[in-house]
Measured scan of single mutants.
Amino acid sequence: CHSECLGNCSQPDDPTKCVACRNFYLDGRCVETCPPPYYHFQDWRCVNFSFCQDLHHKCKNSRRQGCHQYVIHNNKCIPECPSGYTMNSSNLLCTPCLGPCPKVCHLLEGEKTIDSVTSAQELRGCTVINGSLIINIRGGNNLAAELEANLGLIEEISGYLKIRRSYALVSLSFFRKLRLIRGETLEIGNYSFYALDNQNLRQLWDWSKHNLTITQGKLFFHYNPKLCLSEIHKMEEVSGTKGRQERNDIALKTNGDQASCENELLKFSYIRTSFDKILLRWEPYWPPDFRDLLGFMLFYKEAPYQNVTEFDGQDACGSNSWTVVDIDPPLRSNDPKSQNHPGWLMRGLKPWTQYAIFVKTLVTFSDERRTYGAKSDIIYVQTDATNPSVPLDPISVSNSSSQIILKWKPPSDPNGNITHYLVFWERQAEDSELFELDYCLKGLKLPSRTWSPPFESEDSQKHNQSEYEDSAGECCSCPKTDSQILKELEESSFRKTFEDYLHNVVFVPRKT
């Protein structure tokens, strides 16, 4: 048989008469490798580009789960590009990614509803959504962080984005990388972005840091009482949809009607710091009717980097990364020049730590249904340095008659930039024990000054392991946590139920 035959053949030295091919099969003959313009397919066939392209389009058009959109890589027609490569849609070739590779997620039936953290986790790592997304989240724990972890990498949506009755959302900033909504599939009414009845939605994105392009379709905003109209108009300008909307697409009466839409800028007039305090004062603000001013709200939190936005980490279910302080308005003076500047002394802060701070007014709604208010920009203030805590785990070892090696770990709280350490030492008198000992005694162990690591005695271990207080009263049991108490109650309830079950099964009433 021919060298490319495997198993047997019907005619000697003829690659077209093989029972099976050793390498690849091409047009009725066995070959060692697939010549151009053919590609290896499933490690035994040679196919042309049209064959591989037909497989790709067949799966793409069917949208069946589990099928493969075949691509070409290293002269092979394979189910998908290997790690580190992405497909070129024009020629199906796998090309190296520039940075992290995109991950295209194809949605069944063309859309997916995100109504819980669990459903959001199914899209973790996706960068391109081939379909439409509907966000409908009523509640949950730590929602802002969970949504950002699972949806934060999405850069492109081919269909539309719909935010509907998501009472738990305060902001859409968890879509931190969303840059493009194509609108290839539109919501009824030709809408590519749809926001309806979101009672706590206050911000779409921080438009000073976020760009969003909507290729096709219109915007729809109705019944978002805490979303200011200025935020919607800003989205029109940034996304390129200005002029597409009709009169009733953006409701003037049901958007922002319960919001404090600040239209003035508060400026800080005085800032002073110490290692654990920050004193702030800002310019006074009074609405047209000074009785509408209820006070100020001061927001602050630790910020290692200057990239904080107002609604980071917030949701309507209680999660809030900001510390909020309510401040009463100052006494009002008739003389504008003698107006008191409101302020606040922030206490209990960490030394040498940068804080993000902003302040906003708290006002009631005027009778004319106009909203007044003022808010400052987010500023960054760093507390002063102070003395560091003591170095940890000092170790001293003498390696000769004239040297001592000293080692330690950095302090747990540096409280500033540590530039150097101060080492103090003092000579001590020799131990009298060394002169009084009889060095001729056998088995004498000389006193040693070398360091030995501390260890816990058996008594201390027994005390720590004991669940009861000892007789001397030195140790006591740790208080039980809520989960331990709940577990004990469940076990007790189970024992009672099981005992009742045994009584009912074992003891049967005697027939009379």
Rank of each mutant, 00 (worst) to 15 (best):
K103W: 05
K103Y: 05
V104A: 13
V104G: 03
C105E: 03
H106G: 09
H106Q: 11
L107V: 14
E109F: 13
E109T: 13
K112G: 06
T113D: 05
T113W: 02
T113C: 15
T113H: 12
I114R: 01
I114S: 03
I114L: 04
D115P: 02
S116Q: 02
V117G: 02
T118D: 07
T118K: 12
S119N: 15
A120I: 04
A120T: 05
Q121C: 02
E122T: 14
R124L: 08
R124Q: 03
G125Y: 02
C126V: 01
T127C: 12
T127E: 04
T127W: 15
G131P: 02
G131C: 01
G131V: 01
S132D: 03
L133N: 01
L133H: 03
L133Q: 02
I134F: 07
I135T: 00
I135Y: 01
I137L: 00
R138H: 04
G139R: 05
G139N: 04
G139Q: 15
G140R: 14
N141E: 07
N142M: 08
L143H: 05
E146K: 10
E148V: 05
E148R: 15
A149E: 10
A149K: 15
A149Y: 14
N150I: 02
N150T: 04
N150K: 05
G152S: 10
L153N: 14
L153Y: 05
I154Y: 00
E156S: 05
S158W: 14
S158G: 09
S158V: 05
S158Q: 10
G159K: 03
G159D: 01
G159N: 03
L161Q: 03
L161G: 03
K162E: 04
I163H: 00
S166I: 07
S166L: 05
A168P: 09
A168M: 05
L169I: 13
V170E: 10
V170T: 09
S171C: 06
S171L: 02
L172H: 02
L172Y: 06
K177V: 10
K177S: 12
R179E: 11
R179T: 13
L180R: 09
I181K: 01
I181Y: 01
G183H: 03
G183F: 06
E184F: 12
E187S: 08
I188T: 13
I188W: 10
N190R: 13
N190Q: 15
N190S: 13
S192Y: 04
F193Y: 10
L196Q: 12
L196F: 14
N198G: 15
Q199W: 04
N200D: 04
L201I: 06
Q203D: 14
L204V: 07
W205A: 08
W205F: 11
D206V: 10
D206P: 10
D206I: 07
W207L: 10
W207A: 11
W207F: 14
S208G: 14
S208Q: 08
K209I: 15
H210M: 08
H210N: 07
L212Y: 04
L212K: 02
T213A: 09
T213Q: 10
T213E: 11
I214L: 10
T215W: 03
Q216T: 14
G217S: 09
G217E: 07
G217C: 06
L219F: 09
F220A: 13
F221W: 03
H222P: 02
Y223V: 04
K226T: 05
K226A: 03
L229Y: 13
E231T: 15
E231C: 15
I232T: 14
I232S: 03
K234Q: 11
K234C: 13
E236V: 11
E237T: 10
V238Y: 13
V238F: 15
S239I: 10
S239Y: 15
G240N: 04
G240Y: 12
T241H: 10
T241E: 06
T241N: 13
T241M: 13
T241Q: 11
K242D: 09
G243F: 13
G243M: 09
E246G: 15
R247I: 10
R247H: 15
R247M: 06
A251G: 14
A251Y: 15
A251E: 10
L252A: 12
K253D: 05
K253Y: 15
K253G: 15
N255R: 04
G256Y: 02
G256I: 03
G256P: 02
D257A: 02
D257M: 06
D257E: 10
Q258I: 01
C261G: 04
C261Q: 02
E262T: 04
N263R: 12
N263P: 08
N263H: 06
N263G: 10
L265T: 07
L265Y: 03
K267C: 06
K267G: 05
F268C: 06
F268N: 02
S269C: 14
S269Q: 10
I271S: 09
T273W: 15
S274Y: 13
S274T: 09
S274P: 01
F275Y: 04
F275L: 06
I278N: 01
L280F: 04
L280Y: 01
R281I: 14
E283F: 14
Y285N: 01
P288L: 09
P288F: 11
F290D: 15
F290T: 02
R291P: 01
R291W: 02
L293F: 03
L294G: 02
G295R: 03
F296A: 04
F296V: 01
M297P: 01
L298N: 04
L298D: 00
L298W: 02
Y300I: 10
Y300E: 01
K301T: 03
K301W: 02
P304F: 10
Y305M: 13
Y305A: 09
Y305I: 14
Q306S: 12
Q306K: 08
Q306V: 11
N307P: 08
D312L: 09
G313A: 04
Q314F: 00
Q314E: 13
A316M: 07
A316F: 14
C317R: 04
G318A: 03
S319D: 09
N320C: 10
N320R: 14
W322R: 03
W322N: 12
W322I: 13
T323P: 05
T323R: 08
T323N: 14
V325C: 15
D326C: 04
D326R: 09
I327A: 12
P330E: 04
P330T: 08
L331H: 10
L331D: 11
S333E: 11
S333H: 13
D335K: 11
S338Y: 11
S338W: 13
S338E: 14
Q339H: 14
Q339W: 09
Q339I: 13
H341V: 10
H341C: 15
P342L: 06
P342M: 07
P342I: 13
G343H: 13
W344M: 01
L345H: 06
L345M: 09
M346P: 01
M346C: 08
M346N: 04
R347W: 08
G348W: 10
L349N: 01
W352Y: 05
Q354K: 14
Q354S: 06
I357M: 02
I357A: 06
V359R: 00
K360Q: 00
T361W: 01
L362Q: 00
V363H: 05
T364I: 01
D367Q: 15
D367P: 06
E368R: 13
R369C: 03
R369E: 05
R370H: 01
R370Y: 05
R370G: 12
R370T: 08
R370N: 03
T371L: 08
T371P: 04
A374G: 08
S376M: 10
I378L: 14
I378S: 03
V381L: 15
A385F: 04
A385H: 06
T386A: 10
P391H: 01
P391L: 04
L392A: 15
D393P: 04
D393H: 10
D393I: 15
I395K: 15
S396I: 07
N399V: 08
N399G: 14
S400Q: 15
S401Y: 09
S401T: 10
S402R: 11
W408H: 00
K409N: 07
K409S: 07
K409W: 09
P410V: 01
